[in-house]
Computed example of a mutant assay.
Amino acid sequence: MKKAILSGLLVCGAVLFMVPMVYAADATTEGTITFTENNSNTSPVNPLDPAEDFSGTLTTNTTTGSEGALTLDVIPNIDFGTQEIFASEHTYKAIVASEELESNYLQVTDNRTLSSGKGWTITVSNTQFTSDSSTLTGATLTIPAGEARNNLNTISSDIDTTNFLTYEVALTGTGTAQTIFKTADTADDMTGKGTSTSTWPAANVTLTVPQLTAQEGSYASTITWTLTAGATT
């Protein structure tokens, strides 16, 4: 009986002696990334929620194709269609070209780093409405103040009156630029970053023509939308 017990202990001892020693070792690799300035163009977003892409047809607005870290991406098309002549002063409303989007809008994308630029301003100007034979002298193109939104806001569909300013403009064809959309004067380095929109009903754009001015024919005015860096006044 004692032999059996001892033999069993010897076998167990042999098994324990043969277990190999295991040692831990560390190994490292390196993760890398290189950043360059974003010089791509930005596709149209939903002007009522700039965190969403726009999937409709931009008949009431048009893309600019601009590329760079600070870009004006979308600008309005303004069309008054075919209208009747009035001898007295008359105000005409712009037509809505799309049932999908009944708004005009401006879209700005700011991908600049915090240290490379703060704020931006959009101005607008126009030439007089002219035809082949006459000019609508004294005509006033009025664009209402828009509603501003930004895709980086917690609720991107909410109107933002803290970080942005929008203005109604009355353009008389003199070529004088007027501010229509900008970051607030109190803007910090983060204000206006990402994609921002200013939206207004297309039908609220008006053209007021003085009495005894309109003649038969098609008139056109060149409207210039200018984006500049900085929250200028």
Results as ranks from 00 to 15, higher is better:
K2H: 05
K2A: 09
A4M: 05
I5L: 12
S7T: 09
L10P: 02
V11P: 13
C12F: 12
L16Y: 10
M18H: 10
P20L: 09
V22C: 02
A24V: 06
T28E: 10
T28R: 09
T29A: 10
T32W: 01
T32H: 07
N39R: 05
P47W: 01
L48N: 09
P50I: 02
E52P: 01
E52C: 00
D53V: 00
G65F: 01
L72D: 02
D79S: 15
D79K: 08
F80S: 14
G81R: 05
T82S: 08
I85N: 01
S88Y: 03
E89R: 03
H90D: 07
T91F: 12
S103E: 13
S103R: 02
Y105H: 04
D110R: 13
D110I: 14
G117F: 14
K118S: 14
K118W: 10
G119C: 10
G119I: 11
T123R: 04
L136D: 07
G138I: 02
T140I: 14
T140Y: 06
L141R: 13
E147M: 04
A148S: 05
A148Y: 00
L152T: 11
S156H: 02
I159G: 00
N163E: 12
V169H: 07
T174L: 02
A177R: 08
A177V: 05
Q178D: 11
D189M: 08
A203N: 10
N204I: 05
P210I: 00
A214D: 03
Q215G: 13
E216N: 11
S218N: 15
L227I: 11
A229D: 08
A229S: 13
T233R: 03
T233D: 10
